[in-house]
Computed example of a mutant assay.
Amino acid sequence: MPGLLRGIARTAAVAGTATAVHGRIQRRQDAKFAQRDAETAAKRDEAYAEQTAPPPAPVAAAPVAPPPSATSDRLDQLKTLGELKQSGVLTDAEFEAQKAKILAG
């Protein structure tokens, strides 16, 4: 009978030690996973805040001078063309051809 009690006592000591070690490992893992979950939640919240933040106000660009109008360019070209015709440099046919090009462009 003393051998049986000694065996039971040894089994109880081993089981108690195993339970204590297991409990300590479990607590360490729980703490590690809790820290990892907190970091993941913080990153997720930060990403969500970036996505839902209103876009920054657009920066006003310097005003751009409007390009010269095509109409005024055409008028100037037609005036020059008319002056060339009046001075005799262009014939009527040449005048009409150049005028058609200006008005088509």
Results as ranks from 00 to 15, higher is better:
residue 33 F to I: 08
residue 80 T to K: 13
residue 99 K to I: 01
residue 19 T to V: 14
residue 93 A to V: 07
residue 40 T to N: 10
residue 12 A to I: 09
residue 95 F to E: 04
residue 84 L to R: 14
residue 102 I to R: 00
residue 94 E to Q: 15
residue 101 K to W: 00
residue 48 Y to M: 05
residue 36 R to L: 15
residue 96 E to W: 01
residue 89 V to P: 00
residue 24 R to M: 11
residue 83 E to K: 11
residue 1 M to S: 15
residue 46 E to Y: 06
residue 89 V to W: 06
residue 1 M to R: 08
residue 82 G to T: 08
residue 42 A to Y: 04
residue 19 T to D: 06
residue 18 A to G: 14
residue 76 D to Q: 10
residue 27 R to T: 08
residue 5 L to M: 09
residue 53 A to G: 03
residue 24 R to G: 08
residue 5 L to F: 09
residue 27 R to A: 15
residue 101 K to Q: 09
residue 72 S to C: 01
residue 41 A to W: 00
residue 75 L to S: 07
residue 16 G to S: 11
residue 92 D to T: 06
residue 76 D to A: 13
residue 42 A to L: 10
residue 24 R to F: 12
residue 5 L to T: 05
residue 80 T to C: 01
residue 88 G to W: 05
residue 83 E to W: 02
residue 8 I to H: 05
residue 58 P to W: 00
residue 73 D to W: 06
residue 79 K to Q: 12
residue 56 P to Q: 08
residue 101 K to T: 12
residue 29 Q to A: 11
residue 16 G to E: 13
residue 56 P to L: 07
residue 88 G to Y: 06
residue 60 A to S: 09
residue 89 V to Q: 13
residue 61 A to Y: 01
residue 16 G to I: 05
residue 103 L to W: 00
residue 28 R to Q: 12
residue 62 A to M: 04
residue 79 K to D: 14
residue 55 P to D: 09
residue 86 Q to F: 06
residue 50 E to R: 15
residue 50 E to F: 08
residue 102 I to M: 01
residue 82 G to L: 10
residue 98 Q to A: 13
residue 83 E to V: 11
residue 85 K to G: 02
residue 98 Q to F: 03
residue 15 A to D: 10
residue 39 E to T: 05
residue 12 A to L: 14
residue 60 A to E: 13
residue 18 A to H: 03
residue 26 Q to I: 09
residue 92 D to Q: 14
residue 103 L to E: 13
residue 62 A to Y: 03
residue 18 A to S: 10
residue 77 Q to Y: 02
residue 74 R to I: 06
residue 93 A to K: 12
residue 47 A to L: 11
residue 33 F to K: 12
residue 78 L to K: 02
residue 88 G to M: 04
residue 5 L to D: 13
residue 71 T to D: 15
residue 48 Y to I: 00
residue 21 V to D: 11
residue 70 A to P: 08
residue 56 P to I: 01
residue 54 P to N: 04
residue 48 Y to A: 15
residue 40 T to F: 13
residue 7 G to Y: 04
residue 53 A to R: 15
residue 7 G to F: 05
residue 67 P to R: 09
residue 31 A to C: 01
residue 28 R to L: 14
residue 20 A to C: 07
residue 28 R to C: 09
